[in-house]
């Protein structure tokens, strides 16, 4: 098939750019471990407490080591369950020291939800039957809004929490 000589140059330039771009993405994903969240652990959505992480006493933020934290959350329409404070009131706000490594683990008891700490790369789909998890370093101080960003029903826009990263 005949290709115009400018078209050849255009396609060679375009395709080479694509290849370079894909190599960068692949390098990030496979060598630096920046794959998107793809956790494979399954769970019974009607009995999430069978997984130790999602028992009521283990919800919310737990310090596990110097500068290392785990945050466990159970999502349901239209709520994120971060556990309760000492008075038994539901927690809607967690505090994380700046520079801490945090593992977020979340699952849902009912429909599909989203979990996005707005303004960060913590952005996961939360689907019944699966645990979604991502480890990240929170290195900018400020107050972040956690939003459900997958439609879950009439109260979807009222499903939120806040994360504060402090010095």
């Amino acid at each position: 098939m005949h290709l115009h000589k400018y078209e050849k140059k255009w396609l060679i330039f375009g395709i080479s750019s694509l290849v370079v771009f894909l190599i960068i993405l692949g390098f990030g994903a496979f060598w630096q471990g920046t794959h998107p969240q793809s956790h494979g652990v399954t769970i019974d959505p009607e009995n999430v407490e069978a997984n130790e992480a999602f028992r009521p006493e283990n919800l919310g933020i737990t310090k596990i080591d110097d500068n290392k934290y785990i945050v466990n959350i159970v999502a349901s329409a239209f709520n994120y369950d971060f556990g309760t404070d000492e008075n038994g009131a539901p927690l809607k706000h967690i505090r994380i020291p700046k520079g801490a490594t945090v593992l977020f683990q979340i699952t849902t008891k009912d429909v599909v939800h989203g979990f996005n700490i707005a303004g960060t790369n913590v952005n996961m789909m939360v689907e019944p039957g699966y645990v979604s998890s991502i480890e990240t370093v929170m290195d900018r101080t400020g107050e972040y809004t956690v939003v459900c960003n997958e439609y879950c029903g009439v109260g979807h826009h009222l499903m939120f929490a806040t994360v504060e990263v402090y010095d």
Partner: peptide, 19 residues
């Protein structure tokens, strides 16, 4: 890019600065 979600009705998300 500022994190605003799609597919959501009006919400102040508890009045955070981002929202």
């Amino acid at each position: 890019l500022l994190g605003g979600p799609r597919r959501s009705a009006f919400s102040e998300y508890g009045g955070t600065e981002q929202a």
